[in-house]
Structure formats: C-alpha cells, structure tokens
C-alpha cells in the first residue's frame, strides 16, 4: 500500500547558514545549513525530513540564572568562556546560545565588555554561536553592533527581534552578515507579519529563524506546538514569508512549579525530563534548533535524535 508523506506540498523551508569555517572566512569548526526540508520532521528514511540541533544556553552574568543550573554546574557559571568550552567538549552541544545577561543590569553602559566577552567565548569554543543581546531598547543598538562587529565573518544567529523592536538587531545583522531570530507570541499571522517587516528593511529570508515562542510543558506548550505546526504547513504549502527554519526555547522549564518544588534529590531529573519532553515534541512540530539550559538534557536529546531514525534496534530488545 503506497503512501506519500510529502502530501503534495510544493514549498520548501529556506536554508539559514549558522557558523562559518576557516574556508568561509570564520573560525568555527563546522557550519550548519539549517532548513531545506519539504516534509514533516523526524520521518524515517526520508533525507528531506530534518533532525534538529541542540543548543545549550549559557550567560555571562548568572545572577538571575536558574539555581538548578548553578548547583549543577558549580563555579563554571562564573566563567563564561569555560562554560562555553564545556558545552562543546563535555556536554556535547551542537551550538552555544550566549545570553548577555550582564547588559541587563540597571544603567549598563560598558559596551566594550560585551566585545571582550564575545571574543573570549569565540576563542573558547569552535561551535557556531547564538547571541542574545540586551533587553533594553536604550542600549540595543550599541550592544548588537558590538556583537556583530566582534564576530564579523562568524555567521552568528542574533536574538531576539520582535515586532516593535527589531531595527537595531536587523541593522547589526545586515552590517556584519549575521542571521537573526524573529520572535512572535505563539501566532502564525504575527510570525508572518514580523518576517514581512524584516524583509522590508532588507533582511533576507535566508537570514531569519522563526521563534514562535515556546511555552513549556503544562504552561501553554500546546499553543506553541500548534503554532509551530501551522507555521510549518503554511511554509510547505508555499508561503515564503513563513518558510524559515524554527528555533525553540522553553525558557520557563526551570522556573515552573513542578521543577521548583520537586524534592531536592529529584530536581535535576525533573528539570531534564521537562526540557526533554518539551524538546522532543517541539522537534516533532518542526523546530530545527532546540535550546535547553540543563547540560544533561543536551546529551539526552542528542542520543534521542541519533536513535529516532532506523538502526535503533527498537524491535530487537522486546
């Protein structure tokens, strides 16, 4: 009995390149060509069906970072370059997503320090990077330009543009040839609108990743799941304004009640499973980059993504 899981779709997801190797003018050890698929994710034996990448999220000022991660990683969280290096060599992440939380202090103005931090991280790890800039419109422009300039040629992914707050980040991405994350609140139409706004100021489709905003499991995840599916289907049906790969980060996973109130001995485990189940389901809905904060989730997701396709001996162990 025949079946076709390409459903007569005619569209394809555009490609976004993250990370540049020496051959391309950067210093990364690998360059990811994300996107390009024409069907549903994780399908067996279908080369056009994607397997997602896993990014570990870290920050340069852990003051407000989850205590769970601070306990697990210990002193590492105080040295951002070491943390980035460990993400690559020990935790096995595909990408590092650096939150410049230092810029979120009141009256922050030390823009030079942003450049120094980024330089340190770039030399500590050879993985492609995602950089989350400031949270404060007043300094957006300087922070993003500094990041863009410091990592010129490295093909960063810069975050996060939103409707009403995308110009500075777009300017930095355009000036230094980086890509950016476009986030909209769980809605296919708002995602499309933002992409159009970005296009109008000159950001090309192959420099945008969609972040549909991910509510964690139990806290709105079902809305995000369906928003991702709808964005993906619109793209596969031919809507080029939505035909970008998606990035998912369920940042509330570590602050929700189930994790916070878990018995201390169970807390890491609860955090990891929460991130893991959210990540797998998001991957099934079409996310190409899954961001997590607990180092153990990285390994678990990577193992799962490697085993989901054939060769897992899924029948033999029964």
């Amino acid at each position: 009995m025949g079946y076709d899981l390409h459903f007569g779709w005619t569209g394809a997801i555009g490609r976004v390149i993250l990370g540049a190797t020496r051959a391309d003018g950067g210093t990364r050890k690998i360059s990811y060509h994300i996107g390009g698929e024409t069907t549903l994710p994780l399908l067996d034996k279908d080369p056009l069906s994607p397997t997602p990448l896993v990014a570990l999220e870290i920050c340069d000022n852990p003051e407000y970072w989850s205590p769970i991660i601070k306990n697990f990683c210990g002193d590492l969280v105080n040295t951002v370059d070491e943390w980035a290096k460990t993400a690559e060599t020990v935790y096995g992440a595909d990408l590092v997503r650096l939150y410049l939380t230092s810029t979120r202090q009141r009256n922050f103005s030390d823009i030079a320090s942003v450049g120094k931090t980024l330089e340190a991280v770039l030399s500590a790890t050879a993985l492609p990077l995602i950089i989350e800039g400031s949270n404060e419109p007043r300094i957006d422009s300087e922070v993003f330009l500094k990041c863009g300039e410091t990592a010129q040629g490295e093909k960063l992914l810069l975050g996060t543009a939103e409707a009403g707050r995308y110009r500075s980040i777009a300017a930095a991405a355009l000036a230094y040839n980086h890509s950016l994350i476009a986030q909209s609140p769980i809605d296919v139409n708002l995602a499309k609108q933002l992409n159009i706004l970005l296009r109008e100021i000159g950001v090309q489709r192959d420099h945008i990743m969609i972040d549909p905003y991910t509510g964690t499991l139990g806290y709105g995840f079902e809305y995000s799941y369906s928003a991702m599916e709808r964005i993906r289907f619109s793209a596969l049906k031919g809507d080029t304004d939505l035909a970008m790969p998606m990035i998912c980060s369920a940042i509330d996973s570590l602050t929700i009640k189930e994790v916070r109130e878990a018995e201390p001995a169970l807390q890491d485990e609860m955090a990891v499973r929460w991130e893991f189940y959210t990540g797998i389901a998001a991957a099934a809905a079409g996310a190409e980059i899954i961001c997590v904060r607990h180092p153990k989730t990285v390994g678990m997701l990577k193992l799962a993504f490697a085993g989901i396709r054939s060769g897992a001996d899924f029948t033999d162990v029964k």
Partner: peptide, 8 residues
C-alpha cells in the same frame, strides 16, 4: 524498527 519508523 525505531521511533522514527513509528511516526512515519
């Protein structure tokens, strides 16, 4: 044969 085979 695998979870991917299952969802396919």
């Amino acid at each position: 044969q695998s979870p991917g085979d299952f969802i396919t």
